[in-house]
Computed example of a mutant assay.
Amino acid sequence: MSWLQTFVLAIIQGLTEFLPVSSSAHLILPSQLLGWEDQGLAFDVAVHIGTLFAVIWYYRHKLMDMTRGALSGARTRTINPDLRLALLIAWATLPAVVVGFLGKDLIAEHTRSVAVIASSTLVFGVLLWVSDVIGRREMTLMGIGLGVATLVGLAQMLALIPGTSRSGVTITAALLLGLRRDDAANLSFLMSIPLILGAIVLMSFDLAQAEQIFTLAQLLVASVVAGVVAYLTIGFFIALVTRLGMLPFVIYRLALGLLLVAFFL
C-alpha cells in the first residue's frame, strides 16, 4: 500500500477510536469509495498500539492514582477510592472480553455487512442523542458503583456489532445512568485500555499467518500518527461535549448512516 493510504487510514483510526462515531463505519469508506484493499492485520495491530499508548498517556495521572491505590489497598487490606475505581473498571470490562473471545468468529461472519454498519450507525446515533437529553448528569467518575459499572460493561458488549461504536455505546449507557458528560467520556476511555490491550494480544496470535501489505516503516509511522491523533482527539472530545453536548456527533452519525444507505445499499 502507498504512503497516502498509510496516513489516511492511521488518521481515521486515531480519530474514530475514541469519538462516538464508529471506526468500522469509517474504515469501509476508503475501500468502497477509492477501491483500496483491506488494510490487513498488521496495520490493525500497529494503529491499536498507537491508540493504546495515547489513552494511557492521557490518563497517566489517573492510572498512577489507581496503581498507588491498589498498592496501598494490598498493604492495608482496605478498599480505597482509587482501588475501588480500578476494580469497577476491570469488572465492567469482563462482559465484552468474554463475549468477544467466545464469539469473535461468529460476529465477524454475520455482522460485517454494510447494512449492519449503516443500521447500527443510525440507531445508536439516535440513542446517544436520547441519553444526552434525558440523562441527569449528576454523577462523577469517582461516584460510580457496582450497578453502574455492570450496566455500562454490559452495554459495551454491543460494541462488538460493527457500526455501534464502543465509545458511543458506553457513553450512551453512562449518560442514561446519570454520569456527567465529561465523566461518561472518562469512564468510557479508561475502560478502553484493557480492551485495546486484549485486542492487540488476540490479533497478534494470527499475525504470523496474515498477508503483509505494509512495510515495517509504514507500520511504525501509522502507529505514531494514530497515537498522536488519538491523544489530541481525546482532549478535544471531552472539551467539546462539556460545552456543547453530544448533538454534533449525533448529527454526524445520522449523516454518515444515511450516506452509507444511499451509496452502498
Rank of each mutant, 00 (worst) to 15 (best):
R112D: 11
E211P: 07
Q13C: 13
L256S: 06
H26L: 12
L127S: 02
I213E: 10
L87A: 15
T150Y: 08
P95M: 12
G245I: 07
P30D: 08
G257F: 05
R68V: 03
I251E: 06
I196F: 07
M64R: 15
L265F: 12
D132I: 04
S119K: 06
D38L: 05
L34F: 13
A255F: 13
A90H: 02
I171W: 02
F237I: 06
A149W: 03
T233L: 01
L15F: 13
G14H: 03
E138P: 01
L154I: 12
S31C: 02
T51C: 09
D132N: 11
Q39M: 00
A46R: 04
S31K: 11
I196W: 00
R137I: 06
Q5I: 12
W129L: 14
E211W: 00
G14W: 01
I200N: 03
G257D: 09
I79T: 13
R68H: 09
S119F: 13
A159Q: 11
A92D: 11
I12N: 06
T78L: 10
G245F: 01
L265A: 12
A262M: 13
P20R: 01
M66E: 04
L41Y: 02
A174W: 03
I28H: 00
F236D: 00
A149P: 11
A173D: 01
I11N: 09
I12F: 03
H48K: 07
T172E: 08
D38F: 02
L146F: 05
V55Q: 07
L265M: 13
S223L: 07
D105N: 14
Q212D: 07
T164Y: 08
T51D: 07
S165F: 05
F214W: 15
L106N: 10
L127F: 12
S192T: 14
G227I: 03
M139H: 04
R136I: 01
I234M: 08
T164E: 09
I196Y: 04
L106D: 13
T78D: 12
G178K: 03
L247F: 13
A226H: 03
A208W: 01
R75F: 07
D183N: 14
L19K: 01
Y231K: 02
V8M: 07
Y58H: 06
L34W: 08
V261W: 10
M157R: 00
A255D: 11
V133M: 04
L240T: 15
T111A: 15
W91Y: 11
W57I: 11
N186S: 15
G145A: 08
Q39V: 05
I238P: 04
L127W: 03
G103M: 14
L34A: 09
I200C: 08
R136D: 10
L219K: 02
S31F: 00
A174I: 12
P81A: 10
V98N: 14
L34Y: 07
L141E: 06
A208Y: 00
P30E: 08
L195H: 04
S72M: 09
L127I: 10
A54V: 08
S167K: 02
E138D: 11
R180W: 01
M66A: 09
L259W: 12
L244Y: 13
A222Q: 05
A222F: 06
Q156H: 15
A86R: 03
L176M: 14
V250N: 02
T121W: 03
I234H: 01
V201H: 09
L33K: 01
T164A: 10
P162S: 11
A185S: 14
D206H: 11
L260G: 05
A115Y: 05
G198W: 02
